[in-house]
């Protein structure tokens, strides 16, 4: 028996396959807050992380405000199970993938929705920080605090700048979190 596809069958497949794919493909988008932008140099790391996740595409990035729009096909994120309807479950899956790709140095969160002018800008002197990982360590100490919208560490100025929701946290809370870092002696403010 000859199992080679006939020319007719091959032509039909060439026509139908894109149609079938289009029927199952779904391009969802999510606007998210990026946790991990400790300094401008992290933009490059973020790009490398995204390269490791072909199923997620950053179609718009505002590194200064730590915001990104991700595009993805939910079916690609959940290849062997049913796609959940709960957006939180999808975000969790995205964070699992991102955590694995970046050794948990990048994560995503739902934006707070606060207007920019309602955020308070806080500056804390941290001293000279010429080490990229140390900058990240300082950033990490405050980035997880509820009410911190975004933060960044300037190496030459030796200042950590954070934009916070004053209803939820304060400069002192951030200062105390930094002081808890082992081995840190913060300069006089």
């Amino acid at each position: 028996m000859n199992h080679a596809p006939s020319p007719l069958r091959a032509a039909a497949a060439a026509l139908l396959l894109p149609l079938l794919c289009a029927a199952t493909a779904r391009a969802d988008k999510m606007d998210l807050r990026v946790i991990g932008f400790s300094a401008p140099e992290r933009e490059k790391d973020f790009a490398l992380t995204m390269e490791k996740m072909p199923d997620l595409r950053a179609i718009a990035l505002d590194a200064e405000h730590a915001r990104v729009t991700l595009e993805f096909n939910p079916a690609d994120l959940f290849p062997k199970v049913k796609v959940p309807s709960d957006p939180a479950a999808i975000l969790k899956r995205i964070n699992d993938l991102t955590g694995a790709a970046s050794l948990r140095t990048f994560q995503f969160a739902t934006p707070s929705g606060l207007a920019e002018d309602t955020l308070a800008k806080v500056e804390i002197k941290v001293g000279l920080l010429d080490c990229k990982s140390c900058r990240y360590a300082f950033y990490s100490a405050v980035a997880g605090i509820d009410g911190v919208e975004r933060a960044t560490v300037h190496s030459t100025a030796g200042v950590l700048t954070a934009w916070i929701d004053p209803q939820k946290t304060s400069k002192d809370a951030l200062f105390q979190a930094l002081k808890k870092l082992k081995g840190v002696e913060l300069p006089p403010q």
Binding site: R104, C131, Y136, A137, S140, L181
Partner: peptide
């Protein structure tokens, strides 16, 4: 360039450095 010698204070948070691939 990314991980210079310890200066005014020691490097902070060994885990953070390891995660950053320092």
């Amino acid at each position: 360039p990314d991980t210079p010698p310890a200066g005014a204070h020691a490097h902070i948070d060994q885990g953070a450095h390891e995660r950053m691939g320092a």
